[in-house]
Computed example of a mutant assay.
Amino acid sequence: MNASSPVIVLLAAGEASRFGSLKQLAMIDGEPMVRRAARQALACGVPVLAVLGAGVERVASALADLPLQTVVHKGWRDGLGSSLAAGVRAVQHAHPQASGVLVMLADQPRLGTALLAHLLALHAQSPTQIIATAQPGGAGPPALFPRSELDALAAARGQHGAREWLRRDPARVTLVDPTHCSADLRDIDTPDDLRRFTAS
């Protein structure tokens, strides 16, 4: 991809308090969840930047041989919005000509590459649009924010991540139906979630 392509920002910094341990390292289909998510992102052929925080050494080790950039966000305890902002700032520094950022979460391990590729293709057609995934209650991640939104995202704070950002002004967001891409949007927040997920 050229220097002005979008960059995928993989958010993997949280401590997963409801899970009880580092869920980024929970095994899904024989590999750590964060690694599976990262591989799906890398298959899209654009730069990938992973935001790490809690358990940084162990999570980084799970990604060590993958061709992506990692950023350690020391303020990860400030919440998802803070981690999102750190990732966007890192993109602005490392990829100053990036046309946007595609935000994805490490705890959606069976998201699939097809949905990510579809979002990137729509961005190539309409590079000034916010493009997000249709979910119960409105838009959510994965979501692609154009270059015009990056300064605002870089200043995000607190617990609110991409989902809350998208729902502030839904009229500006183009929604994509994930079922058309056979995407599995289930996330894993608790050990029960993981048991149900791996049993399906």
Rank of each mutant, 00 (worst) to 15 (best):
P109I: 00
L49D: 00
Q69M: 15
A54P: 11
S83Q: 01
L102S: 06
V103E: 07
M104P: 06
L102K: 04
R35I: 06
K74V: 15
Q108W: 01
L105M: 14
A98G: 14
Q40T: 01
R89F: 07
L42P: 01
A62Y: 01
A41R: 03
L68F: 11
V103K: 02
A85R: 03
L102E: 01
R110I: 07
V72S: 12
M104Q: 14
L63V: 00
A60S: 12
L105T: 06
Q40K: 01
A54G: 08
G81F: 08
S82E: 01
A41N: 04
T70L: 08
T113H: 13
D29E: 14
H95K: 04
K74Q: 13
D107R: 12
Q40G: 08
M33V: 05
L68P: 01
L42Y: 11
A37F: 06
V72K: 02
C44M: 09
V59N: 00
E57W: 06
R36W: 07
D107E: 11
L111R: 01
T113L: 12
P67Q: 03
V91D: 07
G112M: 12
S82P: 06
V101I: 12
P32T: 09
V88R: 04
A85G: 07
A86L: 04
Q69P: 08
V59L: 00
G81R: 07
W76R: 05
V46H: 01
L63S: 02
R77K: 12
V71Q: 13
S99D: 02
V72L: 12
C44P: 08
H73A: 13
V46E: 04
P32D: 02
D107N: 13
L68Y: 01
A54Y: 06
L63R: 14
P109N: 04
P96Q: 03
L63F: 00
L84N: 03
L42E: 07
S83R: 06
D65G: 10
W76F: 15
R110G: 10
S83M: 08
A85F: 02
L49M: 02
A41T: 02
A114Q: 03
V46S: 03
R58E: 14
A94E: 13
D65I: 05
V56K: 07
R77S: 14
M104E: 10
M104K: 14
G75W: 03
R39S: 08
G55A: 04
P32H: 04
V34Q: 03
V51K: 05
A64W: 12
R77I: 10
V46I: 11
L49C: 06
V101G: 11
L42R: 14
Q40P: 04
H95N: 15
P47C: 02
S61L: 13
G30Q: 01
K74R: 14
V101K: 11
L42V: 11
V103M: 09
V46Y: 04
G53K: 00
A50C: 09
R58S: 11
H73F: 12
R89N: 07
C44S: 10
